[in-house]
Design a protein around this nucleic acid. Structure first.
Lengths: 128, 128
DNA sequence: ACTTATCGATTACGAGTGTAAACCGTCATT
DNA sequence: AATGACGGTTTACACTCGTAATCGATAAGT
């Protein structure tokens, strides 16, 4: 799974909100996207359309004609995007060492007991 | 430790490179910063000066007069910055659940044996 | 067929960013 | 005292981003 065709440019913050809507469900019409996205961000329809266009230009969203309008779908997998962004952060701030990120989160008390338990479980699974 | 005075605006990518130089050693003169930064980024002196000014404006760098010139030092701790950025990523991409980030890195095979061992060690320390 | 509601496309515009030149004051050297 | 080097400040400029209005085509209803 995963094949990046042409992520041309990076997905911005606002664009990311649109991507989340599409990752949550797709294909969606522009109005559908608007309905979903405006629950979180206080945007108008034109704004959503602009973001959709830019995402299509960037190759992050693909379109499929549906009668006179378009249906939009993500063209990149969420896991790819998320993985890419995570790697960028780890590279930029932690010299590429994920353990340092982990240490940072731990030191910052960003990890509660639940998180620790989950991570422990994942670790055990990885060890097997 | 850590008191953010007025991070007014966010530190950008290019500015971050300058911050790294100052976190690595400070105080530094503008030329010193230039010497260090231009090893990685192909910048000219004016560019470095602009970035320094912007960082001073943002309150991320403080100045100290040294004769006729200035010496620059970070005004925010690297650990604060890094922690803030990490949290932003986790919130944005992982719904605020650090364990999901961890799972992502694991699944992406971004974690080698060393990383796993280190994280395990950190976990054990946190448990005590 | 004519009007209207939709929808995508084009245009807009201020703020921030990357990158840098030009300007200006001052210290040092001749 | 004049000149040049060095360093900070101002200005520049193209591009991206957030946010949105307007335009133009088309489908649908009357």
């Amino acid at each position: 799974m995963s094949r990046k065709s042409a992520p041309s440019s990076a997905i911005s913050e606002a664009e990311h909100a649109v991507m989340e809507a599409l990752w949550d469900q797709s294909p969606l019409s522009a109005s559908d996207v608007f309905d979903r996205v405006c629950r979180e961000r206080d945007w108008t329809m034109p704004t959503v359309k602009t973001l959709l266009s830019r995402l299509v230009n960037k190759g992050a969203v693909s379109t499929e004609p549906d009668g006179r309008r378009f249906l939009y779908s993500p063209a990149i997998a969420r896991s790819d995007y998320v993985g890419q962004e995570s790697k960028r952060l780890v590279d930029r701030l932690f010299g590429g060492r994920p353990a340092s990120l982990f240490a940072q989160l731990a030191e910052n008390e960003a990890l509660d007991d639940n998180d620790l338990a989950e991570i422990e479980k994942l670790l055990r699974e990885l060890r097997s």
